[in-house]
Design a protein around this nucleic acid. Structure first.
Lengths: 203, 203
DNA sequence: CAAAGTTACTGAACGCTGTTTAGTAAAAAC
DNA sequence: GTTTTTACTAAACAGCGTTCAGTAACTTTG
């Protein structure tokens, strides 16, 4: 029992060690700088060893995505405690955009990476993301229930708001805003968010 | 003179040959399937020959981006002839989303690829994209001038509309809509676009 | 405690990328 | 006809994800 459980613990520790290294490298050098050999070098093991703990690079990628999803959830958490559904929705949106602009690499990992989406539905990161998304949709539904909107199509409302926020962050993250001077971009994002809130009020 | 100009012509033809091959491979196998060796094989030259006509893969990538930008411009062209600025704006938006959903690979190439953005401002594809973007902003301005909106901040209006359209297409292209059944996605996109139009009317 | 069996790890390789270099054969210039 | 320039390629390099045979340490067994 003792030895078996120690082995199990060591296995988990090693997986953690690998993931932490991957995490650090990703933060320092982005997705492109992250490769098996760089992880191996950092933890002072051979590249082959990585494969004894993770099936392939995708598995590490999914684990990283989970970290990002958890960070996003934590970032949005303060909004959850706001009583008024409309205020909660606005703050949720503000924090969503804030997360994207503050952590472009993580937002990228979560929403803009092409990577291995094949079976992402079965991954923890997807489950976690879904929970956050469900909370968002529920908040919109709460607004509908409280007659904050004329429209009652909460699904479309939620989706439309998400499209705007996601588009806003995506244009930032993938640097498609070069037609606007860098110093104006933040202001423009704020104005656009405010405009969207205003528009939603008269929805 | 004769020989020099023939050589020049042959050089241009070869560049065209390479680009067409790259274009076909991209359409068939996506960005990931596109590599120097596959281009070389298709045109029946050695990989090294490619480098006599294009500095590196990025240069081919930029040329492809230009093709995509041209295809997008052509797709949006029908909107340009609509007299009424508001009708023109709505049709422009509709066609923009339509282009993204019909040609996800090209939209990806234009707006979602991480790739070499360093000096894209100097590239033809950027210039072309800017022209299209300028037309869009001008249309919004025309709407403002014709008092279609209460707000007069045309820059923010244009940006907000773009964010929504871009977000909508991006979520499709990068497959982040798996929480919605496939058969509902198209309908949801349509509803969301209609909602955004409605919201813009009361802007 | 020693022998046998199992586990953890690695060096070296494979096949795939983008890219460079040295060399060759044909075309052009003289 | 000789020399120079051009067009092209085979082979290699470095870096990637991944696999495999082999080794050394640890665990179990007698």
């Amino acid at each position: 029992m003792g030895i078996a459980s120690r082995k199990e613990r060591e296995k988990a520790e090693m997986r953690r060690l690998i993931l932490d290294a991957a995490h650090d490298i990703f933060k320092e050098n982005g997705y492109d700088g992250l490769n098996i050999r760089s992880i191996a070098e950092r933890i002072e093991y051979s590249p082959a060893t990585i494969y004894l703990y993770y099936k392939d690079k995708n598995e590490i990628f999914f684990a990283l995505q989970y970290e990002a999803a958890a960070a996003k959830r934590d970032h949005l958490l303060p909004a959850a405690s706001i009583e008024d559904p409309w205020m909660r929705l606005v703050e949720f949106g503000r924090l969503y955009v804030d997360f994207g602009l503050k952590h472009p690499d993580w937002y990228d990992l979560l929403f803009l990476t092409r990577a291995p989406m094949e079976h992402i539905e079965n991954q923890d990161c997807w489950t976690l993301g879904m929970a956050t998304h469900a909370f968002f949709v529920e908040t919109v539904q709460a607004c509908v229930d409280a007659r904050y909107f004329k429209s009652t199509d909460s699904a479309t409302i939620a989706y439309t708001l998400w499209c705007h926020a996601h588009g806003l962050v995506s244009l930032f993250v993938r640097e498609r805003m070069r037609m606007y001077p860098p110093e104006e971009r933040g202001e423009l994002a704020k104005k656009s968010f405010a405009m969207m809130v205003k528009m939603a009020e008269s929805l």
